[in-house]
Amino acid sequence: MLNSTGYYKHILKCSEQMEDGRMILFDPDSGKTHVLNATAGKIYRLCTNTEPEGIALSILEEGMDVDKEVILEDVCDTIQNFVELKIIAAI
């Protein structure tokens, strides 16, 4: 379930790099690598200081021709996946 305040923090002590439009997160403690597409990478960067609705608006500003509610649902699903993968945590 999403945090009611909408604020999260990165909990991996990982290195991040961009490659071919993707964000690659490597956690040296677990040895796990997470590869995020460009949109998921943007959500990851923004979710620490922006509520999900603000993230959806930011994505819409990039000119995506998708309904705001659809994007908001996708943003919330992505954030929930990050929480389940223990990439971020609610604060």
Rank of each mutant, 00 (worst) to 15 (best):
M64F: 11
M64R: 09
C14S: 15
G6M: 10
P52Q: 02
Q17M: 14
P28H: 02
H34M: 09
E62W: 00
L2V: 06
V75T: 00
E73A: 05
S4P: 00
C14H: 14
K32R: 13
L72E: 01
K9I: 07
T50Q: 09
Y7D: 09
K32C: 00
I11G: 07
L57Y: 06
E16I: 13
F82Q: 10
C14V: 14
S58W: 02
E53P: 11
D20L: 13
I59S: 01
M18I: 13
Y7G: 07
M1G: 07
E61S: 10
M18K: 13
N81I: 08
D65C: 05
L25S: 06
L25K: 10
K86L: 13
R45P: 06
T50P: 06
F26I: 01
F82I: 08
S58I: 04
Y8G: 03
N49S: 07
I79V: 15
M1L: 01
F82E: 09
K32D: 12
T78H: 03
E84I: 12
G31I: 06
E62V: 00
M64P: 08
R45H: 14
Q17F: 12
D20G: 04
D20P: 04
I43R: 11
P28R: 05
E69V: 05
K13A: 15
N3V: 03
Q80S: 15
A38S: 15
I24R: 09
K68P: 07
I24C: 04
L57M: 05
I43H: 09
L12I: 13
G31T: 10
V83R: 14
D77M: 12
I24V: 15
I43M: 01
E73Q: 02
I24N: 09
L46F: 10
E16L: 11
Q80W: 04
Y8N: 10
Q17L: 14
E16Q: 15
T39E: 13
G63H: 05
S15P: 07
S58K: 08
Y44V: 04
G54F: 07
N49R: 04
I11E: 04
G41Q: 10
K42C: 06
G21E: 02
I43A: 07
E61D: 12
V70K: 06
F82S: 08
K86V: 09
T48I: 08
A40G: 06
A56L: 02
F26T: 09
D67F: 04
V75I: 00
M23L: 15
V70Q: 01
L36E: 03
I87K: 04
K68T: 03
G63F: 10
